[in-house]
Design a protein around this nucleic acid. Sequence first.
DNA 1: GATGAATGAGCCTTCATTCAT
DNA 2: TATGAATGAAGGCTCATTCAT
Lengths: 203, 203, 203, 203
Amino acid sequence: MASRIEGLDEVILRCAEQEFLEKGFTEASLRTIAQNAGVSTSTIYTRYSDKEGLFRFLIKPAAEGIREYVRRSLQGFSELPEEEQTEQYEDYSEQGFPGLVSCIYEHYNALKLLITCAPGTIYQDFLESLVELDTSCTRRFLEQIGSSALTEGRITDGFLHVVSSAFYAGIFEVVIHDMPRQEAEVYINELRNFYSNGWKTYF
Amino acid sequence: MASRIEGLDEVILRCAEQEFLEKGFTEASLRTIAQNAGVSTSTIYTRYSDKEGLFRFLIKPAAEGIREYVRRSLQGFSELPEEEQTEQYEDYSEQGFPGLVSCIYEHYNALKLLITCAPGTIYQDFLESLVELDTSCTRRFLEQIGSSALTEGRITDGFLHVVSSAFYAGIFEVVIHDMPRQEAEVYINELRNFYSNGWKTYF
Amino acid sequence: MASRIEGLDEVILRCAEQEFLEKGFTEASLRTIAQNAGVSTSTIYTRYSDKEGLFRFLIKPAAEGIREYVRRSLQGFSELPEEEQTEQYEDYSEQGFPGLVSCIYEHYNALKLLITCAPGTIYQDFLESLVELDTSCTRRFLEQIGSSALTEGRITDGFLHVVSSAFYAGIFEVVIHDMPRQEAEVYINELRNFYSNGWKTYF
Amino acid sequence: MASRIEGLDEVILRCAEQEFLEKGFTEASLRTIAQNAGVSTSTIYTRYSDKEGLFRFLIKPAAEGIREYVRRSLQGFSELPEEEQTEQYEDYSEQGFPGLVSCIYEHYNALKLLITCAPGTIYQDFLESLVELDTSCTRRFLEQIGSSALTEGRITDGFLHVVSSAFYAGIFEVVIHDMPRQEAEVYINELRNFYSNGWKTYF
DNA sequence: GATGAATGAGCCTTCATTCAT
DNA sequence: TATGAATGAAGGCTCATTCAT
């Protein structure tokens, strides 16, 4: 009874990453991955149950990493006293998501996979999860400051939702366009600034 | 000379649209489209050359419509006297792309196809074409007003490009999230406002 | 009612020849032929009934030309007085099929088609028809000279048949290998010499 | 590890042979072969890569067998002392390729496949490989005996090539015409005799 | 006579997945 | 656990041919 071959996972995952990156999920071939990794197709099934399982395994740390970062970041904001929150919005460009870029580049390949190669609604679901964190935080803030835009219904759930997903989609352009890290930092700060400026008009 | 069967195109195109929308380009099956339309697979080849030809046919008016709208809109801006251009930027939220939403909803399904289901680089190329129009217009404006950010190299081609594509990607969230038309109008104006505010810091 | 377009046949036939030559009968595409000729596929059907009809039309003159030449040539031999026939066999290299090469080069392309591109049994049938002419002439000669090989059954129909078809197949190597005309003349004479030498042992 | 189903290869190969023989390579259908063999089309791909792989597998032993026979036979001739070589040429009809017929009938069906059904240049390449062996042996002999025909340029590479391929094509008539084995032996000896007689005129 | 359109049959091939070993 | 073999479904596409105009 053969035990798990040492280091095989790494080889498989590296080959899978490459194949998915090159061809996207649908067009990627399990056979090709297996061949490049020097294992049988069946081995992949033994370890990751199926094609989608393999893909999800590859992107999981990245998705969770980003999500965790955003969660903690928003939570930090929520826990500030109200006046500081407002203040931050005034000059967010210096705070922003200070470590977001690090987080992105830490999971670069996997993130690119998730953003550009995912099958079905995997990317949408991921984006959705970020947007939910974001909008609920924003709504809470707007409620705290007693925003009239909110009570008068000018700001709806739909609006919050779309503005937020446009924002995150904007951030992920960094990955789509393989922006160098330094450029990305400036860009993301700028984006954050844009959206801050947008929101301020509702305060 | 056997003439084209009356109204067949409409049936085929409707079925194709549905199939592509449901499964995306790659996963969509020509056989299924043909079956639903009640024609032979070959008929599709006779009329649209191949799968991609069919897809492009479906998409073409939408892509061209949007592109044409954006072109004319930017051209109108460029032809204004300099002071009015600056003025517009100051309060763009009341001008925006006034007819863009109409244009989007006119081609709604086809646009959704283009944005969410296109194979290869078709969507990227489309987006790119808009971004090119946009950035060359923006650069021209910045040159006219003698922007120091431009001459000092803080604004690069890459920066223009990414900000612009983030903007258009943001606009297309309207389609991705099936936003009701009225909401979309507000949203797009808002987005325009965001980006205007962003640019203003460079003037 | 449109009358036959002037000179269309020539164009079609030239394009068909090229396509068949390039791809062989099976792989050749009627559509390609039609496209290159600038006519509709249907036009070919109107004029040549179907793909095989078109092919047969192309090769007919060549097949008949060669067959006619061989027939007349053998007939000439048969009509000689017996002693001259024997004599010819003794020094056939100077007589051979004196005009055969001319005949071959007159129909070169069509012959190449027939030999290398024909579908089904068309080439076999053609070869067979030559072999039949040849063997019946040979047998008649052997009978005339009272060949013991014949009466003793050492020379059978099968033997005659195969030797003859090997001979003609040998001749057609000229076409298969695109042998220059002058070289071909020498070669065919040589071949004839070989076979004459072979036969002489049975006299 | 699922082992190969017992005896499946034989069934598949037999069905493939039949189909190729009946319709030729191009017209033969893998589906039909699979159906007749009672396996799925994919099984054929698992075992033989593709259609051509299957064909080549069928043919390989025959092609190699014949080639090997010819090689050894010519080598034997080359290794004789010069006077015996000349002697053999004088009365080759009694030596010929004594075991060639056995070799042919051993691989009968596969050889028929190779000669009458092969796609592309497979048969040509096979023939060419024989011709190469043959001509280099012949040339060596002519050089040894200091043939004036060679030094004077009357015998060229082209001539050697064509005469040789006509000879082997002649031999394969045996297969094309399904000649009974005994008849074939006589025929091939005869053919060898013909060509020996031809060559002798150049010595 | 010429044609554009339509067709149905058929092609080879690839795929993810299962299963006995 | 790892695997080679087998599979059924499906894929896009090409073809020769027919037919109404």
